[in-house]
Design a protein around this nucleic acid. Structure first.
Lengths: 237, 237
DNA sequence: AATTTTTATATTGTCGACAATTAAAAAGTT
DNA sequence: AACTTTTTAATTGTCGACAATATAAAAATT
């Protein structure tokens, strides 16, 4: 049995060389991001085991991997649930990302490692997508690619790790978050602004652009969360 | 079988209500902090299983818990090792702590929750210990108690979580780190400085004191790490 | 009828055994 | 003798079965 996906949990290993628990974790993560598994949903070990045609042992390890990123919450003797974040928690995560992003940018190493070139290509691609008004999934993908391109130049590995983890914790709400054309245009504009600032070594400007980018993303995520809560409320009533 | 320790991995649960894997994780963590298990040491599942009189299943879960805090590194099919940090990595972790501590202090809620009072008691106790020139273990303990006292007032739970995790990742090198009387005096002085700044609502001063506190701790940790590396080098030769 | 107690069911936790993989040792080859 | 290949041993990974615990349903009590 071989599952395929690369969301960063297996850290750069291709499906063929990922362990079974990593593959399962990726797969469950994908279900959470896509909404197939909603926040608060219970995750039963034997169900996953049946689904993937394995025993519960690797499934348990997969759940531990997801717990590490706060994607699921495991309660002893009660099992795992998809993590349910409050508006406060989402805001807190984005606040941290904003601050840490600033820290990362101020220490960023962009000399002779091709980072600016790779970013230029990615941002251009994003501008092309926005221009052509293509569908949202593509946009999310390119958005993450730019993020990854910067993180390569981060000089503090622990910081990289934390930023990636925080990003995953709210991916549920950012994945198709750039819904409106206006939002996508703004996003592309801010990425471009940030890139140009980096090129001309205006770090503070780059940091400001990044902060605006993250704040916009935060507002969008909070909106989606509140929508979701309304729907959940209506269903319970 | 009941093991006893409370290092924050089991998040406030007393030994009686900790799960078996949590108890094992605490115990192994204690061994790492004490130096009984050194960085790079391999950890064999069956050895731990024998030692605690359990099967490998709960041991594996314990290792996953420790991996979440980067205390051990699990490599697929090869097993777990005590995480070995480079000087760069230790510096990176402390740099993050310094920045995040600043962020925490700027948002700290110290109104009518008894935090300042609890800190005052803890800092006074520290000053007493320094005065009496008591032994180091007591000092480490009180030091962590002050940290915990502040964290209660942190308004961003995710930030609290990250700060605690980062602290544990270098505990190996900070535990008996306040060795010299001079260092302990300086530490007590800086904590006092920070507390007084908080009392009179001079946030920037509090942040500056915290930064100096962390930087001093970092220098000490790096020293200990370098000592350790020299010893390891000598042993290999 | 409402509340508690008991029983039954569902689900996670732990175990011992075996399979898969890696590391070490032995045998073979140039 | 140095290098490859094969065999052996050690260790982790997965499995199915059972134990412990929590949830749900039924029975008993007030």
């Amino acid at each position: 049995m071989v599952i395929d996906a690369q969301n960063g949990l297996g850290a750069g290993r291709t499906a063929r060389f990922q362990t079974l628990p990593e593959q399962i974790a990726e797969n469950v993560f994908a279900k959470i991001v896509s909404g197939e598994l909603a926040p608060g949903d219970r995750i039963r070990e034997d169900h996953l085991a049946d689904e993937f045609g394995v025993s519960r042992a690797p499934v348990r390890e997969a759940l531990r991997i997801l717990e590490r990123d706060s994607v699921v919450l495991i309660t002893p003797n009660k099992g795992a649930r998809v993590t349910q974040l409050s508006v406060k928690e989402v805001s807190d995560i984005f606040e941290l990302r904003r601050e840490l992003m600033g820290l990362m940018l101020s220490g960023l190493d962009i000399t002779g490692n091709g980072v600016l070139e790779r970013m230029e290509r990615a941002v251009s691609e994003m501008e092309r997508i926005v221009e052509a008004n293509e569908d949202a999934p593509q946009f999310s993908e390119i958005s993450y690619r730019i993020s990854r391109a910067i993180l390569v130049a981060c000089t503090n590995d622990k910081l990289t790790e934390i930023l990636q983890s925080l990003s995953r914790q709210t991916r549920r709400y950012t994945e198709l978050g750039l819904a409106s054309q206006a939002r996508r245009q703004e996003s592309a504009r801010l990425w471009r602004e940030m890139l140009e600032a980096l090129k001309t070594n205006r770090r503070q400007d780059a940091i400001a652009s990044a902060a605006r980018l993250i704040d916009a993303s935060c507002r969008e995520a909070v909106c989606r969360l509140e929508e979701e809560q309304l729907v959940a409320q209506a269903a319970t009533r």
